[in-house]
Amino acid sequence: MTEAFVSEPDEAIGPAWASLEDRWVVVTGAARGLGRAIALGVARFGADVIAIDRDEVGLAGLRDGVEAFGRSCLTGVCDVRDAAAVDAVLAEAVERSGRIDVLVNNAGGGFWAPFLDVSPGGEAALIAENFTQVTHLIRAVVPHMTGGGAIVSVTSIEGHRAGPGFALYSAMKAAVENLTRSLALELAERRIRVNAVAPDMIPTPGDDALAEAAGAMADDAYDAHPWPDAGTPDDAAAAVIFLASDMSRFITGSTIHLDGGTYAASGWKRRRSDGAWLL
């Protein structure tokens, strides 16, 4: 039996592995919520940002925040479903940056409706917003990752369980998760790592109205998730920073479940009155 060959790292692990110094990071849906936190987070760790969103005012505020950390922020006001507009934004950004190091596919969204009530137009919109724009961005960005890079897609816990009233949204998030694993293999020779984060229970703008429409309001008799504290957009930023940095340089094709243990619980809930776990 031959011994396995173990290569030595270029340098011992240290703070430099966590740095994103001088890397160019594309973040979609960057004007608010998780996208804003991610864009500001990578800037804190030294990255320059290419921010894409429909919200021009929100992008202007984000740019000020990124520049306050001494980093550059190029903004593109467009709908990620508009492939031609996205291509124009990326072409202008690459002309200035020279390359792209990290792509964060954060943009997405949905609405509550029973599957049989979703019109063909609504279905097309959900597919375009949650899947097609992701595949287009990856195809558009990869040629500019000339020195390797990282792709991180923000999916959802709904991509790993049933989503009644959100069937198409859930299906597209599951599709992105599967795409992540496939592309991790296809892009390995290019030294591009491909991973995902699957959030749950992280409040962002519009969540309350969506939950009310779905009738999915919290039940005060049970904890919302196993972990005692609520998640924040900065928790999503931390996971993305980890996956974008050299701290995760041997991780590809994986998903971080950013949900306070909800996925692990698989339906188990803790009753607040006595701490009992019930199905």
Rank of each mutant, 00 (worst) to 15 (best):
residue 67 E to Y: 07
residue 47 A to N: 03
residue 168 L to P: 06
residue 90 L to D: 03
residue 90 L to R: 08
residue 4 A to L: 11
residue 106 N to S: 06
residue 171 A to V: 05
residue 260 G to H: 04
residue 240 V to Q: 09
residue 46 G to C: 05
residue 45 F to A: 14
residue 151 I to N: 03
residue 51 A to Q: 02
residue 103 L to R: 02
residue 225 H to W: 02
residue 67 E to A: 14
residue 176 V to G: 11
residue 86 V to P: 02
residue 142 V to N: 04
residue 39 A to H: 00
residue 21 E to N: 11
residue 116 L to E: 15
residue 258 L to I: 04
residue 279 L to W: 14
residue 10 D to S: 14
residue 147 G to P: 00
residue 22 D to Q: 14
residue 171 A to K: 02
residue 194 V to H: 04
residue 223 D to H: 13
residue 172 M to H: 12
residue 226 P to C: 11
residue 62 L to N: 07
residue 7 S to P: 08
residue 4 A to T: 12
residue 121 G to I: 07
residue 80 V to C: 07
residue 159 G to I: 01
residue 159 G to H: 01
residue 140 A to C: 11
residue 231 G to L: 04
residue 193 R to D: 00
residue 257 H to I: 07
residue 199 P to Q: 08
residue 179 L to E: 03
residue 252 T to E: 00
residue 129 E to Y: 10
residue 79 D to Q: 07
residue 196 A to R: 08
residue 141 V to E: 01
residue 151 I to R: 05
residue 134 V to D: 01
residue 63 R to N: 12
residue 158 E to Y: 15
residue 111 F to K: 06
residue 66 V to E: 01
residue 64 D to P: 08
residue 123 E to K: 14
residue 152 V to W: 03
residue 6 V to E: 08
residue 165 G to C: 09
residue 87 D to Y: 07
residue 140 A to P: 02
residue 11 E to K: 15
residue 220 D to L: 08
residue 199 P to I: 06
residue 205 P to R: 09
residue 219 D to C: 11
residue 15 P to T: 13
residue 80 V to G: 05
residue 139 R to T: 11
residue 254 S to T: 12
residue 226 P to D: 06
residue 187 L to N: 03
residue 59 L to P: 10
residue 243 L to K: 04
residue 258 L to F: 00
residue 158 E to I: 12
residue 72 S to V: 14
residue 206 G to M: 10
residue 107 A to G: 12
residue 102 V to Q: 05
residue 21 E to W: 02
residue 2 T to V: 13
residue 194 V to S: 02
residue 35 G to F: 02
residue 131 F to Q: 14
residue 51 A to F: 03
residue 54 R to V: 13
residue 215 G to N: 04
residue 212 E to W: 10
residue 276 A to L: 03
residue 14 G to R: 05
residue 135 T to Q: 08
residue 202 I to F: 10
residue 262 T to E: 04
residue 262 T to K: 10
residue 166 F to S: 14
residue 134 V to H: 03
residue 135 T to R: 11
residue 154 V to G: 03
residue 152 V to N: 10
residue 259 D to W: 02
residue 111 F to P: 02
residue 210 L to A: 15
residue 47 A to E: 05
residue 233 P to C: 07
residue 110 G to F: 06
residue 52 I to S: 10
residue 77 V to R: 08
residue 247 M to H: 09
residue 212 E to Q: 15
residue 25 V to D: 06
residue 224 A to R: 13
residue 167 A to Q: 11
residue 107 A to Y: 03
residue 241 I to F: 05
residue 211 A to N: 13
residue 267 G to P: 00
residue 131 F to W: 07
residue 98 G to K: 12
residue 42 V to D: 05
residue 40 L to D: 08
residue 219 D to L: 09
residue 214 A to I: 07
residue 216 A to W: 07
residue 92 E to G: 15
residue 16 A to M: 13
residue 160 H to L: 15
residue 175 A to H: 09
residue 103 L to Q: 04
residue 191 R to F: 01
residue 50 I to L: 08
residue 37 A to H: 05
residue 189 E to N: 14
residue 94 V to C: 06
residue 34 L to H: 10
residue 178 N to G: 15
residue 263 Y to L: 13
residue 165 G to P: 03
residue 123 E to P: 05
residue 264 A to L: 11
residue 227 W to D: 12
residue 1 M to C: 13
residue 262 T to N: 06
residue 70 G to H: 07
residue 211 A to M: 13
residue 187 L to P: 01
residue 63 R to T: 14
residue 225 H to Y: 05
residue 29 G to V: 03
residue 219 D to Y: 11
